[in-house]
Amino acid sequence: MDKVTNILMAGVGGQGVILASEIVSEAMMQAGYDVKKSEVHGMAQRGGSVTTHVRFGKKVYSPLIKDGEVDILFSFELLETMRYLGTLSPDAIVLVNNQKILPPSVTLGKDEYPDTIPGLLSARYPRFELVDALGVAQQAGNAKAVNVAFVGVLSRFFDVAEDIWHKAIAAMLPPKLVDLNLKAFALGREQH
């Protein structure tokens, strides 16, 4: 496969977006691809918006995805999804975790959290999927595994063997959390 696959991951600081990107990048490297991944640390993490670019293929040059060429928008939060639509390719997969995290202006009662997001997305994007990753993580036994459960959902889109995913998860998590996260991953991978 010569074409580079571009995943833009988006969410809110604290949701585990970066860890998810680490797992996917590690898995893709172990699957034999060239991989690059890029994000911004620092101020952005204090409850602010977080994005990370993950790219893999035969040979990857840029660590950033060119606007208009995102193949998969992998979004951990409804509102965050809406910020990056301009980066999508025409037939992008839009995979969204059905979670709302209220931004300060909403908690302060100044703005409303838009409630039309899933409808708007499904009307424009034929490949839009809404996933209850939090529910999946809770089913696996811990709400904190939401990011790995969501990676499980994402994993269905790639032809990468299950044991490679397992190795990547084991490599990226502290040993005592591995079993729980493997379970969350497996449940996520079964979602349709």
Partner: peptide, 16 residues
């Protein structure tokens, strides 16, 4: 842009 915004205004999410 092939994908113009779907919502005109998005509440910002600054660091805090």
């Amino acid at each position: 842009l092939e994908n113009p915004p779907l919502l005109e205004y998005l509440p910002p999410r600054p660091p805090n």
